Simulated assay, not measured.
Amino acid sequence: MLIDFNKAKEVTMPGMNHGTGMMTAKMYNEWKYDCDERFQKLKKNEEELNRIFIHIYGLEEELTPEEEDQYVTVRKADLKRDIKSFSSFAVGCMFGRYSLDADGLVYAGGEWDESKYKTFIPDKDAIIPITDDEYFTDDIVGRFVKFVKVVYGADTLEENLKFIADALGGKGLPREVIRKYFLKDFFKDHCKVYKKRPIYWLFDSGKNDGFKCLIYMHRYQSDTLARIRTDYVHEQQARYRTAIDGMERQINRASTSERVHLNKQLSKLKNQAEEIRIYEEKIHHLADQMIQINLDDGVKHNYAIFQDVLAKIK
């Protein structure tokens, strides 16, 4: 299933039989054709209802029965939008909001039921790092690749990742394109779909991408920030120190022509390391408070509590 977040309905994506299919352009086009047929059929039905009501109330002089596409209650297929929606559904499965073993919304607070997740297991601590390189094996890209593998199978994994990357656009290898999407655009898209009331919160150190991670608001606990700080921020700081040391040794051995490029990389790493150092102090201050939230207060109120360490909602 693929969630249509704009209308809170589920639609079927091609090949989403666990481990048995490939999301090819051909399969997508077949699914697109089915979507378009449903769209045109519903549009025709809605226009016929309009004609009936216009006739009943004698409004022929004032109204026409034609329905604009944007007001038809199902959507046409759109590859880029649908792949983004698929990515959002994957993140929902990572957090346990959705499950490949149950229809609809599975968890939005309350008692956690592990028995609802068999095919794809949600993230244990509900903290998913987003980095510009593969610093964590279980970062959002690693988990997304695993999700695609579980849904469509190992044999077609690389073809499916390429199909997804091509739909998202951008240059580079499929995993690089997917990483860039999660790093730069996923949260912006999420905020648009949820009308600036995100349920996935982006912890963000700043413009240098020193540190980013997503959490699911409904799985927030009072020690979540402490775990982000000790298990992820501190780990990322250690990785930057190692990377900087390695880069400096590499520069010392490099030729003059190579040093320009390497020094640029070193400068980026140092900027990220400094950014995360400052960020660690901010998150430390909040983590020590062991803040509790009330979901009934809503997204806007709760998000504002952590605004110093969260990405701005645009």
Rank of each mutant, 00 (worst) to 15 (best):
M1C: 01
I3P: 00
F5H: 12
E10F: 09
G15P: 04
G15N: 11
N17W: 02
G19S: 02
G19F: 05
T20Y: 10
G21Q: 04
T24A: 10
D34E: 13
L42D: 00
I52G: 00
Y57K: 10
E60F: 00
D82Y: 03
F86P: 01
A90S: 15
A90V: 13
G96V: 10
R97G: 02
S99E: 10
S99R: 03
D101G: 06
D103E: 13
G104H: 11
L105N: 11
G110M: 11
K116Y: 10
F120W: 03
I121G: 01
K124I: 05
D125N: 15
D125F: 06
D125A: 09
D125I: 03
P129A: 09
E134W: 04
T137Y: 12
D139W: 06
F144W: 13
V148S: 05
L157E: 06
E158N: 12
A165K: 03
D166R: 04
G169V: 08
G169I: 08
K171P: 00
R179E: 01
D185F: 07
F187V: 02
K188N: 08
H190A: 04
H190E: 14
Y194M: 15
Y194W: 15
Y194I: 02
R197W: 00
R197K: 15
W201M: 11
G206T: 08
D209R: 13
F211G: 08
K212F: 05
C213N: 06
L214E: 03
L214Q: 03
Y216I: 08
Y216S: 07
Q221Y: 05
T230V: 14
I244Y: 10
G246A: 06
E248P: 03
E258C: 01
V260G: 02
Q265Y: 01
L266A: 05
K268H: 08
K270I: 02
I278N: 12
Y279S: 06
I291A: 05
N294C: 09
G298I: 05
I305S: 04
F306V: 09
